[in-house]
């Protein structure tokens, strides 16, 4: 069954005459892992932001169904409660917002929406320790303000740490692999693979084929100029690694001619 179904999605920026997505079609089945690759500025993060509910983007046409529901009807927090999670390409720093307090509130609001009981402080701390350990996240980071003064790699790990705490059904990873060292890449991949239990879906946005060796995708999509220009299996990622994107552009142009 389709966990996520995007049909002919056109997106622009409100108040400005900018169009970014020009008819995206994508279906992700429950249990699947899809990769989205594509040149800089092609619209990958915009798609991720629209899925998470960022308000500066305006959907001009098309629709998105998540678990059969109209996703665009939901507020960002409702999407989180329903199990949508975006690991940001550029996580913001929130000085003064304590990591522990924020995450506890976050976990409990998501649990409440799922009809689960609130975690006690002790249970929460226990879970936090376990998951931080699993991902090789320095436990001291959880005592600080959210992302404040974190290194680039620490921010990325922190996103995956939150993913592990919130256990979403649809996880979107926007270039989580960029800026990670080899060890971090492996622990992030391990974290993701642990959650791959057949009941969730993953969209992994990346520029590098390397992460796809650890978390093997079922499909690979290439986003160009706000459209999915090509889809294929994991071999496609290999091809892109070797030949870049231009050949796809040429082929698309030739087909259109």
């Amino acid at each position: 069954m389709a966990l996520l179904e995007i049909n002919n999605l056109h997106v622009g920026v409100e108040d400005e005459d900018i169009k970014i997505l020009n008819g995206v079609d994508l279906t992700l089945d429950t249990g699947d892992m899809h990769a989205i690759m594509g040149p800089n500025g092609s619209g990958k993060s915009t798609l991720a932001s629209v899925l998470a509910g960022r308000e500066e983007y305006e959907v001009l046409e098309g629709d998105i169904h998540y678990d059969g529901e109209d996703l665009l009807e939901l507020e960002p927090e409702e999407r989180a409660e329903e199990g949508v999670f975006l690991a940001f390409q550029y996580p913001v720093e929130l000085p003064g917002v304590s990591m522990t307090n924020f995450l506890k509130e976050s976990v409990n609001s998501v649990r409440e929406a799922r009809g689960q009981e609130e975690l006690s402080s002790a249970e929460f701390l226990q879970q936090m320790r376990e998951r931080a350990d699993m991902l090789g996240l320095d436990a001291d980071l959880t005592k600080r303000s959210v992302n404040e003064g974190f290194s680039g790699g620490e921010k990325k790990r922190n996103e995956i740490f939150q993913l592990a705490m919130l256990e979403p059904r649809l996880a979107i990873l926007d270039e989580t692999d960029s800026g990670l060292d080899i060890d971090a890449l492996q622990s992030v991949a391990n974290g993701v693979n642990k959650l791959r239990d057949g009941d969730r879906g993953f969209l992994v946005i990346t520029h590098y084929e390397r992460i796809l060796q650890y978390i093997v995708p079922d499909r690979v999509h290439v986003m160009m100029d706000g459209q999915i220009a090509r889809s294929g299996d994991k071999e496609l990622a290999q091809q892109l690694e070797e030949h870049g994107y231009e050949w796809i552009r040429d082929e698309v142009a030739a087909a259109a001619a």
Binding site: R54, R79, A80, F88, L94, V97, F102, Q162, L166
Partner: peptide, 19 residues
């Protein structure tokens, strides 16, 4: 920041208060 917090399940109100 508000969006970040909301995307983690905090209400718009809670996100503003926290910020």
């Amino acid at each position: 920041g508000v969006f970040y917090l909301r995307s983690r399940g905090l209400s718009e109100r809670r996100a503003h208060i926290l910020m």
